[in-house]
Amino acid sequence: MNPVLHAAKLGVLRGWIEFKQMLKNPQEFGFNIIMTIVFLVVLYFQRNKTIEGNDMALAMFALPSLLGMLVVFGGFMGAATTLTFEREDGTLLRAKATPNGMVSYLISRIISVTTFSMVSVIMLLMPGLFLIKGLADTSWSGWLLLLLIFIIGILATLPWGAVVGSLVKSTASSFNLTMLPLGALTAISGIFYPITSLPDWLQVIGQIFPVYWLGLGMRAALLPETAVLAEIGESWRYFEMFGVLGIWTIAGFLIVPKILRRMARKESGSTMEKRKQEMMSRGY
């Protein structure tokens, strides 16, 4: 029995056990449920509004874009907050104290971040299908593309979340450091309204980051062919889409092992105790 392989299998098992725990604890989705409801209300009021120069409903444009944004939230913010939270409560140290526990820990966390994001995407997509006419007509190739975009979206954002989660000290700062930049990025990534309405320089910045490309990918997957007219260059730009997301993925996976190792090496009972004391003196 190869111990590393054995631990990897246990990591998958752990991911599955924790996925079931997640489904049994709907309160964990509290934040997501509220966000989903807000999005649905906004979409509902946008259903008759059309976007400029196109007769497509704004809601129809926004729903797939929001799905793209949710992937980034799940991958980036999910990984960052999980990592800092579990450093604080000792889960990570437990993994370190167990033979090959880190292998299993990382695999199970990739699974839990992915499944959590998937659930939050489905939570918005399901009611969206009823709310917005036309989405339900998506072909099987469209659904396949959605899955592909989802996977590459997680791959492109999860390692960067792990980097932030390793570098910051507390869950609160991990939340702030991911939530705020994501909020700003969302505003310039053509999620709620086409990016073409922004000044050129903001469009350039927006297109550096994954949020825009994931929104574009989701629109490509779910919207009818005519919707492409609202995009930059009237094209889905698949080459650029997978290019940019691919670069984020590769760079992320190159940098993350080093940072994770460094963070894990520093982790010990007394560092955890110190954080706990700090947390208690802060009162949260």
């Binding site: 000792g90 437990r94 299993s104």
Partner: peptide, 28 residues
């Protein structure tokens, strides 16, 4: 190893976690 403060795995059940963590020692 038993350290000063663990608060990990709050959602797991007692037997479930102990059994799971034990399995990492099987190869040894």
């Amino acid at each position: 190893i038993v350290m000063q403060s663990w608060r990990d795995h709050p959602k797991w059940k007692v037997h479930e976690l102990l059994d799971h963590l034990g399995r990492y020692y099987e190869p040894y």
